Computed example of a mutant assay.
Amino acid sequence: MRNPLGRSLVSRVLTATVAAAVALTMAACGQVQDSSSGAGGGDATTTSVDTLFGAVEVPADPQRVVALGWSDAEAALALGVQPVAVSDWLAFGGKGVGPWAAPLFTGTPTILPTLELNYEQISSLNPDLILNTRSDNSKEKFDELSKIAPTVSAPPGVTIQYGTSWQQQMQQVSAALGKKDEGTKLIAKVDAAFEAARSANPNFAGKTVAVGAFFSDSYGAYVDGDSRVEFMKSLGFVNKPEIQALSKGQSFYEQLAREQVELLSADLTVIFPLGGDATPLKTDPVLNQIPSAQAGHLLIMEDPTLINAFSSGSTLGTKYAIENAVPLIKAKTAA
């Protein structure tokens, strides 16, 4: 059953992060019988992919790909592969991917739930490969999905939920699809776009940044391992140490009490609403009195498409965000 929340799927992930135990309980429902060998036992018709849960043998030429992880579908599309089903993490609607990726679909995929996986529905799609590279890293979910088809999760070493970088995602997906060379080229193109942005804006280097969100009348800040923070770091910024110090090493996001809002003040503050418009941010006297706001260094993102690209963590979405966010960032750091 489709997740009933109608707002951005980012907000659903934040809810799941706060209540991870609930999400794991939800994942346990609808289990299926084992119909796949999962990992191990590779031969000439399979490719081995290293994952957080060990090596997984995937078919050399998968035909029916189910993309469950956050922006996994966009990674597959960038490589010329059209998943038969996708999870719409950012609530795009339509084909379940951003407008920078949707035209690459020639058909309309089945849209699947996100946090509450429907294993029976996934099994009915007869996948020969499941992509789940950016997720909550649940071993229970991995085990259930592996009963259906070989499942490629986050790579080894990713400990933060949804902490797979866009580079790692492309590496995992391209390896699983037998398109490593194409994946390497796509990564190089995005790296080149970041390099061009850094070269054009040398004043970004070493400046502190605080990336925050506003959801359900409360604020939060993103920490290292989150795609938005890594985006800013790729431009030369440094995540504000006082915010990074809040991290417990498991979540990409830390909630802030009202009295902690000033922690968002940095050389540049980037903040956006989740599942709503930016009016509360523009009119909040607490946010607008922090030093970075007073100095003209507060960037409130308003465009939902740009917010989603900034949050996508895919090669396609990241490229769109570089093209459209960097001019806004430049304007707020010029003073």
Rank of each mutant, 00 (worst) to 15 (best):
A44Q: 09
P150N: 10
F204W: 09
S292V: 04
S199A: 14
S35F: 13
E242I: 06
P127Y: 11
F214Y: 09
E140S: 00
G212N: 06
S247W: 03
G98V: 14
A309H: 15
S138M: 03
S314W: 13
T133F: 15
G275V: 00
Q260R: 07
G6Y: 01
A188N: 14
F231S: 05
L186F: 04
S138P: 06
V211F: 04
P285Y: 02
Y119L: 10
T279D: 13
G69M: 11
F105A: 15
S71C: 14
Q244E: 09
Y219R: 07
D136E: 06
N126D: 15
P156C: 01
S218K: 12
E242R: 01
V22C: 00
A221T: 03
D43H: 02
L14P: 01
T184Q: 13
M170Y: 14
Q289G: 00
T318P: 14
L246Q: 03
S138G: 01
L115H: 03
K141P: 01
G178D: 13
P113L: 06
L177S: 10
P103K: 15
L14I: 09
G317W: 13
V10M: 12
D43K: 00
A16D: 03
L145S: 01
A335V: 15
A44M: 08
D143G: 01
G69W: 11
G54Y: 08
Q255F: 10
V58Q: 06
K147W: 03
G93W: 15
R134K: 12
E182D: 14
S165H: 00
S48W: 00
Q31L: 07
E262R: 01
A309R: 14
Q161V: 12
S146C: 05
V152L: 06
P150E: 15
E195R: 07
A91M: 10
G6D: 03
T208S: 11
V286S: 05
T184K: 10
T333A: 11
D217H: 12
P273E: 04
F92P: 12
F231A: 02
A23V: 04
Q294G: 05
N308P: 13
V18A: 04
Q33H: 07
R228C: 00
T15Q: 02
P62G: 09
S138K: 04
A197D: 07
T47G: 02
P109A: 14
A39W: 04
S292T: 01
A44S: 11
F214N: 04
P304T: 11
N126P: 13
F92T: 13
Y162E: 06
K319F: 07
I111K: 09
D267K: 10
A27Q: 00
T114N: 09
S199M: 15
D303F: 12
Y253W: 02
N201L: 10
G93M: 13
Q255P: 08
T133A: 11
P327L: 09
K141G: 02
G40I: 02
E262N: 00
S153Y: 03
T208F: 07
L268N: 02
